[in-house]
Amino acid sequence: MEAEGLSFEEAFGQLEQTVATLEQGDLSLERALALFEEGMRLVGRCNAMLDQAELRIRQLVPSGDGYVLADLE
């Protein structure tokens, strides 16, 4: 599973799940270490998104019969 390209919600949710699985305890050493590495990748993904986030502001404007999204300001 590739952490890159996940939305924050997906990365956060998968991280939560990974920690919960690790907590179960009855895992093989290989599985536990693989989960740990996966979890650390997800931590990186979450932190990168939080660090780089910049609010994007757009506006719904009428266009013909419907609407389109346009940048605001």
């Binding site: 990974t18 920690v19 690790l22 907590e23 740990f36 979890g39 650390m40 931590v43």
Partner: peptide
Amino acid sequence: VAAWQRQMALLAARR
């Protein structure tokens, strides 16, 4: 996320 990171490190060390 930071809390989970610490917890995973602890769990991995324990394992």
